[in-house]
Each structure stands twice: as structure tokens, then as C-alpha cells.
Design a protein around this nucleic acid. Structure first.
Lengths: 143, 143
DNA sequence: TCTTAAATATGATTTATATCATATTTATTA
DNA sequence: TAATAAATATGATATAAATCATATTTAAGA
């Protein structure tokens, strides 16, 4: 359900939230090293996010990636959804076929509450809040 | 975190729980078709479960797979753990590195409660209970 | 004890995901 | 406006997961 790509992406976006701003753009090579993800790989992921307007970027000298205020107020789910695609996110963790309350598969009730909680959490939390947690020592890097 | 293989395996084991017994063994080919999983693939998964003593089997004519009473009282988690391996199960859904309450990663609290609930559910529910749900119309096949 | 029907063991192939490489476009600055 | 430094676009390669193929072992029954 959640791929490595999503994890890498969250790392990178969180790094941008903590370290970048409109005035302080960061190059791919200066992101990949501290978050410990291959440069070419995270570049591809960040490019996709930029294309989807979830993060910001400019080309050329002095260019790089950064988060605008709008970007920082995106939810973690927004990020994950772009990487995973909506369909994968909406599939149950374990569930066998399309199923719902009216027509539950045998393990629907083993997975649905867990899944709903995860989705709610990811939807409520903004990138900015994640960054604040780190700054306040509530959670810790290195990633 | 949870692979296709686990889903297929749950389908097959549940099918066995409903349809097999010590006296009524079922061949791979008669399992793969109704649960809609390639024969050679589900064969490999069932063989692994048999090796780990989570399901029962005998070779030769009149042979096949079946669930003993002990098998039926295994938890869903027991099955999934064999297929996924313990390490993958214990990794957070999204989490970045090894993290826990004392040293939470930035998204630890977005994922841990969801994960704990899933694990608890999978651990509590037995194969037999799943089969009963189907028989009582609480959940529905086809898988 | 021979034949047959089943699981088992092993490994090959395919497909998807992750990773790497490179040419192109764009923005800055001299 | 030329040189440079960055993202972007595209596609190639490597690795892992899923799927397929086949030879071997075991048990039943004639």
C-alpha cells in the first residue's frame, strides 16, 4: 500500500519544510545527502511533486526546491496520494476485492478501522506541523 | 507492508477452512480456480505454509491440503507473518527508520495507532472465526 | 511392486519497482 | 548575450516481487 517512494518523498518534503523557504532554495544534491536517498531517485520524485504543484522549484543558477507557505499547509496525505496514486490508497490494506460496509469481504472489519485511522491522521497533519514537531523536539531526525 | 502474496494466502486458507477437513483434502488445482489465483503461485505459498505447519497436507493420490482443528485456530496474523516475515510486519507502515515511543520519527504518531490496531485485529481473529463469519453471512465471498 | 496422482523442490521467466545516466530546457549573472 | 548552474524529460539498467515450468518425492491402489 505504501511504497518506499512515499517514505523517501516524505523525508525530502520534511527536510524542505525545515530548511527551505522562498528565499532559500535547496538543490537536489543538498537534499539527497542528508536524507540518505539516492540523488537521481529523489530528484525524480521531487520533480513529480513540483509538476503537481505540491512543492515549488525554479531552474537555473540559484534555483532549487523549496516550500511556499501554501505548500507547507498541504497535508501529508496530499503528498502520499500523488506518489501512490489515489487507487492504491483507497484499496484496503489487506482486503481482497472492492468491499465496503454493505458487502464486506472476510477481512474487511479486521482492516477498515486501522485504515480509516491512518487516512484520518495523514489528512489532518500538515507538512508544517510535522516540521514544528521536529523543531520542538517532539520527534527526531535524522530521518 | 502487506504483499499480494498475503492476500492470496488468506484467500486460500479461508477457502480451506470452509471447504476442507481431515477427511476432505483439496488439491491445489481445486483451490486456485475458485479463489482466482494462478495455480503454480498459490501452490508455492501453500507449500511454505505446510512446511511451517500452519496448514496440513499429504502427498500422493487422494492427497491434498486441508486444515486440522489446530490449524483452524491459528490467527490470521500467524499466516501473514509467515508470508511477510516478522521484520516486515514490525516495520511501521510509513515509518522512516526504526523508531519507537522514546525516539519517534516525525510520522511515528501518524502511523503507530493504526498499525497497532491492525496487528491486534489480525492477532485476535482465528481462521475458524473468519470462516464462521462467511457461513453466517456476516461477510461474503467470492474472494 | 508398478502405476498413478498428488505435493514438494528448484529454478526460470516475467513484471513492477527502484535506481541510474544523460540530453534538454530555463534562469542567472558576468 | 554567452556561460553556467540548476531543474526537467526521457529512457536505460538493476533489483525485487510475482508468476510460470519442470523434475523429484511420496502415498494410494491395482
Amino acid at each position: 500500500m505504501i511504497s518506499n517512494s512515499s517514505k523517501y518523498t516524505i523525508k525530502a518534503v520534511l527536510f524542505l519544510a525545515i530548511n527551505s523557504s522562498e528565499e532559500k532554495k535547496i538543490m537536489v544534491k543538498d537534499i539527497s545527502e542528508p536524507i540518505n536517498v539516492p540523488q537521481a531517485y529523489i530528484a525524480k520524485l521531487l520533480q513529480e511533486l513540483a509538476k503537481q504543484k505540491l512543492i515549488s522549484s525554479t531552474r537555473g543558477p540559484k534555483g532549487g526546491f523549496f516550500l511556499s507557505d501554501i505548500d507547507k499547509n498541504r497535508s501529508v496525505l496530499d503528498i502520499v496520494a500523488v506518489i501512490e496514486g489515489e487507487r492504491n490508497l483507497n484499496a484496503c490494506l489487506l482486503s481482497l476485492e472492492k468491499c465496503d460496509k454493505n458487502n464486506p469481504c472476510p477481512i474487511h472489519y479486521l482492516t477498515s478501522n486501522s485504515r480509516n485511522i491512518l487516512m484520518k491522521n495523514l489528512k489532518q497533519k500538515t507538512i508544517n506541523e510535522l516540521a514544528l514537531d521536529v523543531k520542538n523536539g517532539k520527534s527526531s531526525l535524522p530521518l
